[in-house]
């Protein structure tokens, strides 16, 4: 399989503080990779390096063969091909749901208004929220907003999806409606890189699990290996804490 996302020896510093150290991993086409680890371990920073929301000082990141860190790369174009879902949804509060779904399609991909609306509504229907099309983000629940955010990313026809703790800001009862959408996506063969603490989701859906600690990738293995017998002590500790409940 060819790697859709390839990170090689990625290192990043905030001033003199090193947040990522020699991170190397890849996500193959159609693969679902879950990134987990304690807070402050660099998971979110790592995933943001994939679409250059965070610059990095060393190493290379290739997305579909294109180098993200290369100054000659057309970043807006590359980013438009990679969908991203954020912890705090980040829908645009001044735009209606339909406009949220359509704006990047129109302004970035140059689609007509009609086409953008049609596509947006198709994906809104997919996440079960077609009835909310005319509302504004502030009128939806957290779980609904996150589903709209996923639909918004999907309407750009991404080659891969990045999820940065998509359920961490949600009430417990809303987590599942978002995970269900993500599970559906995974089953359809979407290439996904997900930073999440939802180990149930990882167990059900992930092909591989990456465990990070203090800016290092300490485990990078299949989910069977990871949940069977994680090799490192740190990962064992983490799992024992998180799986108790």
């Amino acid at each position: 399989m060819t790697a859709m996302i390839q990170l090689s020896n990625v290192s990043k510093w905030y001033g003199s503080f090193q947040v990522l150290t020699d991170c190397t991993t890849q996500v193959a086409k159609g693969e679902v990779v879950v990134v987990c680890g304690p807070s402050g371990s660099g998971k979110s920073t790592l995933i943001k390096c994939v679409n250059a929301l965070e610059p990095f000082q060393k190493g290379t990141v290739l997305v579909d063969g294109i180098s993200v860190g290369d100054p000659k790369t057309d970043l807006p174009k590359l980013r438009s091909r990679v969908g991203m879902v954020f912890q705090h949804f980040e829908l645009f509060p001044h735009l209606s749901i339909t406009e949220n779904l359509a704006i990047a399609q129109m302004k970035v991909l140059g689609r007509s208004r009609d086409e953008a609306h049609e596509r947006g509504l198709k994906y809104l229907d997919r996440v079960g929220l077609k009835a909310q099309a005319a509302k504004f983000p502030g009128q939806l629940s957290g779980g609904q907003q996150q589903r709209v955010a996923i639909a918004r990313a999907l309407s750009m026809d991404p080659i891969a999806m990045l999820f940065d703790e998509p359920t961490s800001a949600l009430d417990p009862e809303m987590i599942n409606e978002v995970l269900d959408v993500m599970t559906g996506l995974a089953h359809e063969g979407m290439t996904m890189m997900c930073v999440t603490h939802e180990m149930g989701f990882a167990r059900r859906v992930a092909d591989r699990v990456i465990f990070m600690d203090q800016g290092h990738i300490v485990e990078d293995c299949t989910k069977e290996e990871f949940f069977g017998a994680p090799r490192g002590e740190r990962a064992q500790q983490f799992l024992s804490k998180i799986l108790q409940h």
């Binding site: 807006p76 590359l78 980040e90 645009f92 970035v108």
Partner: peptide
């Protein structure tokens, strides 16, 4: 929130577009 411009960049907006469509209207 910083996340607003991040979300806009992540969808492929250029800097002027981020201001025009996301930051300034808010």
């Amino acid at each position: 929130p910083k996340g607003q411009s991040n979300a806009a960049y992540a969808m492929g907006f250029t800097l002027p577009q981020v201001y025009r469509h996301v930051l300034l209207p808010q």
